[in-house]
Design a protein around this nucleic acid. Structure first.
Lengths: 188, 188
DNA sequence: ATCATTATTTGACCTAAGTCAAATTTCTTG
DNA sequence: CAAGAAATTTGACTTAGGTCAAATAATGAT
């Protein structure tokens, strides 16, 4: 799976100048402050956010409680996948957990660019495939691992999450309560 | 989400003859008997299977127990997504639950065809997007719904599943035991 | 139809994780 | 640095769903 990110990065590196220039011409940088919302519930996700620096998350509300569904670090691409794909209202929020700098690409401009530059279409496919596999793997973990095992998985594979993100957020990301996470940590 | 299937179907209907012919030339029909495995664990998923008739499922083994991850009916596309995408060993099996007829397309041939016919590339993107949204929605349900609610969801949105699939399989698809599913059904 | 599988239900008990409440610890910010 | 706020831990108790075992259906092959 990590190797697929490498594949994507290599693909980007190998893009011809024309395609690259076209892509850069529809992207622009922007800064957000800690706590800012890049996307709100019920908005249509009309932009993609490539994290240049900082940390962000995606979450939704479930009877008033925030359930985090994805954490973003440098080089991660933040979007509400189904809102972006269908151009329908998002059930998710995207929030800056620290000050962040992002490279923004507009949905519409990217759609247009894809028709002119087939390599961007291939890139889009690779990104969609990566996301599909990522979610599939997450579902797999919910299906087969206990809360403790899921936490250990994060601890092993994504230690930066445990080091930088408040436990409340990690707990909801793992699908458990804050108290349970605290007890898991006390035990291991 | 259903509307996205419509969009994909409309896109296919609107394909030019050349693209369509190219696609058909790399696809062929095949029949399997109930119980046959279209894909085994540790094999590389080198083909996609479009169900023409019959029912199939995808599952994996977790300490010897079969966990069903997807159910396929007419017009559904059966593949092990990550094995197909990465061309790596599959952790999942694909099994015919009834006699089935499928239209098989080889991975390699499709990859080649995509470079010649960009519309197939767009089609592939749409299929990947659809799968991504489908898994995302399933994960969402695991994250927020109780076992009973997940069962009711199936009962409402996919009654054909309850009508045709053995409870053992439905239970594992819902991430619960057979006994719990039986009790849920007795209560409602 | 009958016997043998296979599928489903029911019972008794167990356990992982949730809930609610209170106590600490750790950050912030004046 | 101190006071307040936020984050985390701990305690007592509840509950959804799991486990193991046995009892009934329901199906299918002869």
């Amino acid at each position: 799976m990590t190797s697929y990110i490498d594949k994507i990065n290599n693909y980007i590196k190998a893009l011809d100048n024309e395609t690259l220039t076209a892509f850069q011409s529809i992207s622009s940088d922007k800064k957000y402050k800690k706590g800012d919302l890049l996307l709100r519930q019920n908005e249509i996700c009309g932009k993609s956010y490539l994290l240049i620096s900082g940390i962000a998350r995606k979450y939704y509300l479930n009877d008033g409680k925030e359930i985090t569904t994805e954490l973003y670090f440098e080089n991660d691409l933040a979007v509400s996948f189904s809102s972006y794909t269908l151009q329908q209202q998002s059930r998710e929020f995207i929030e800056a957990l620290t000050d962040v700098t992002v490279s923004i690409t507009h949905y519409k401009a990217f759609q247009d660019a894809k028709t002119k530059y087939p390599k961007l279409l291939t890139l889009d496919l690779m990104l969609a495939e990566y996301y599909g596999m990522w979610v599939e793997n997450r579902l797999f973990q919910f299906h087969t691992l206990t809360a403790t095992e899921r936490y250990l998985e994060i601890l092993n594979k994504s230690p930066h999450i445990v080091q930088t993100i408040p436990l409340t957020i990690i707990a909801s990301y793992l699908g458990i309560t804050l108290e349970t996470l605290s007890r898991i940590r006390a035990k291991i």
